[in-house]
Each structure stands twice: as C-alpha cells, then as structure tokens.
Design a protein around this nucleic acid. Structure first.
Lengths: 167, 167
DNA sequence: GAGCTGTTGTTGAACACTCAACCAACTGAG
DNA sequence: CTCAGTTGGTTGAGTGTTCAACAACAGCTC
C-alpha cells in the first residue's frame, strides 16, 4: 500500500490547446453575455437564469433549494440573487405550505414580462457568439463533453468521488 | 430600410440541451477547480492563470497589459490580482525601461515554487473533470468551438462586430 | 415525545470583480 | 514643438459571491 503519488500526467499539446481555447472562449463568452443582459435589460446572467427556471416551473414557482440545485449555485447565492430580484419586483417570496422551513420563489407578472423582453437578447448572443460560430457537429460534441463533466461533478452522486478517482 | 427586427431564432431542442449542459458543466467545473486550488494551495484560478502566463514568458516577466490580454481580463482586474500576488510575495512589480507608463510583473522564486506545487492539482482536476470524462474526439471538437468563440469575441478584431452582425 | 441528525434558508463579514474616473506618458498630425 | 487623441495602469466605490455560523424545522430512532 506504500504506493507513492503517481507522477502528474500532463496534458498533450493538443489537449492543452483545446483547454486554453475553452478557457479563453468561455471567459469572453460569459463576459459578453453578461454585459449584453446588463446593458440592455439590467439583469445579470445569474438573475436571468433564475427567471428562466421559474418561468418553466409549474405555476412559475419553485423552492429555493430546487432553484439552487437546478443551476448549481450555492443556497446562499440563491438567497442573495432572489433578494435582489424581489427588491426589483420581478420575483415574490412565499411560505411553503408543506414544509415550514421552505421558501417558495415565484415569478411576478413583471418578472415574466422582463424575461420575455430579455430572452431574445440572450438567445441571440448565444447563437452569434457560440452556437453558430463553428461546425454544428462540433457544438453537439461540446454538449456531450460538458454533460459528462456535469454528471461527473454532480453533488448528488458522491459515488463519482470513489469510483473514478486518481489511479 | 424600414426593416423591422427579425424574429428571434430560438434554439432547437438539441441546441438548447447542449447549451444547458455547457452552462451546468462549466459552472461546476470552474467551481471545483477553484475550490481545489483554494483549499490545497490558497490560490484562485485567476491567480493561478497569471502565474502560468508569467512562468511561460521570457525571463518570467510580462507587462500588465500583455497579461491582461492573454487571459482576457480587464486591466483593472489584473491590477487587483497582481496586487494580491505581490502582497503574498509571489510576484514583484518593476518599472518598464522602454515605456515609462509601463509596469512589469515578474514571477518571484517563491511564486515559481508555488506554481510548481499547484500545477499537478490543477492539471489533475482538468483531466478528471473534463478532458478524460468523455470521448477524446468530442473534447477536441469542443476546443474548436471555443477557439471560434474566442476569435469571434476578440476585442482586437472589431471587424467581427460589423461583418457578422444580426441580419 | 425526547433526542439525534440532517436539511432549509438566512445573515453578515470577507473577498473578488466591475465600472467610471483619473493621471501620466506615448503617438502622430500639423 | 504643440496639441489632441490614445494607451497604460491605478484607484475607490459599488456590486456580487463565498464562507462560516446560525436558527428553524423535518425525519428518524428509541
């Protein structure tokens, strides 16, 4: 069992190039999407995502924890984000009837209207900056890669830690 | 010229799925890489990236603006980040001999040592969370996609704004 | 139902980033 | 040379996120 730390397996030049492209591209992408939403609709990307999730939920309401896990943000972050959205009237808080700890965030009409306004800006950006810039097959491949990453890092599935660790 | 706003071209279900996978996967990926570096080496990802760029530069020194553009961060952000790194002794500032406005950031020996320590943690994470979780061909495809995004959003190349805009 | 244990959501302080304003220094046209 | 315009870097205020601590509740065991 006295197995020493395995030597680091560095990235191949091709892998490193791809990794750095991703780093640079995603940095610029998020920057730009964020800026577009901020300038045109006074929303951050995180706020926009919350509005989207709420709009898709039954009755346009979701519990804080569900909201948090659906976008993989910390509960604390969701609390702060929702507080801002509540302050600007886009979201309302309500008590959860079945669990007295629970808090339900619901999209107001004003929030829905804002989302309808902002969506074209956002989708347009996603298309112009990402989806439509390269080969469609490549984009789908990227989707598969990140789906794998997402499930690899799914906090629910702690087994990933054990099964596939270093070695 | 009274052409009205073109109707938004929404994402297809497949595109939307890929986009959301990317959003979720990259969120978790950056979170985890950040946490690993923070916990094991008390560095943020941004700080780590700076150290990497410096370590690769001739004489391990780079001007602030070059540093900024190589990682696509704002000059202000680079100022703040380098200030922190300087405060912890990993980087030193020096005046630029050829341009009296210029400031040169250089990696200290301590900074280099810290980077050598941290690199295995980081590369290991990149492999386990991203590079090795899916099909290698898919990963290279993702690299191409984000390279395209990066150049599409390259601040140097303002022509992109004109050539490929909405229409 | 008393006592654990884990979950839910909030809080406030510390930290990181953005943005606008600013000064100093370079550049090029006249 | 001079002036306008641009670039390089910093600053501080405002904003957003993290982190640890906490209170309230749920679910379980005995």
């Amino acid at each position: 069992m006295a197995r020493t730390q395995a030597p680091t397996q560095w990235l191949t030049p091709a892998q490193q190039h791809a990794w750095r492209s991703f780093l640079l591209g995603s940095t610029r992408l998020f920057d730009q999407l964020e800026r577009d939403l901020r300038v045109e609709h006074d929303l951050s990307l995180a706020e926009y995502e919350m509005l989207v999730r709420l709009s898709e939920a039954p009755d346009r309401r979701l519990r804080m924890a569900e909201l948090a896990s659906s976008v993989s943000h910390s509960r604390s972050r969701v609390t702060h984000t929702i507080s801002r959205l509540e302050a600007s009237g886009l979201v309302a808080r309500a008590a959860c009837p079945t669990d007295r700890r629970g808090v339900i965030a619901s999209l107001t009409d004003e929030g829905f209207a804002r989302l309808v306004d902002a969506a074209p800006t956002h989708v347009d950006g996603v298309r112009r900056y990402l989806v439509d810039v390269g080969d469609p097959g490549d984009f789908e491949a990227a989707g598969r890669v990140f789906a794998a990453t997402a499930s690899r890092l799914d906090p629910q599935c702690a087994s990933a830690e054990l099964g596939v660790s270093r070695g």
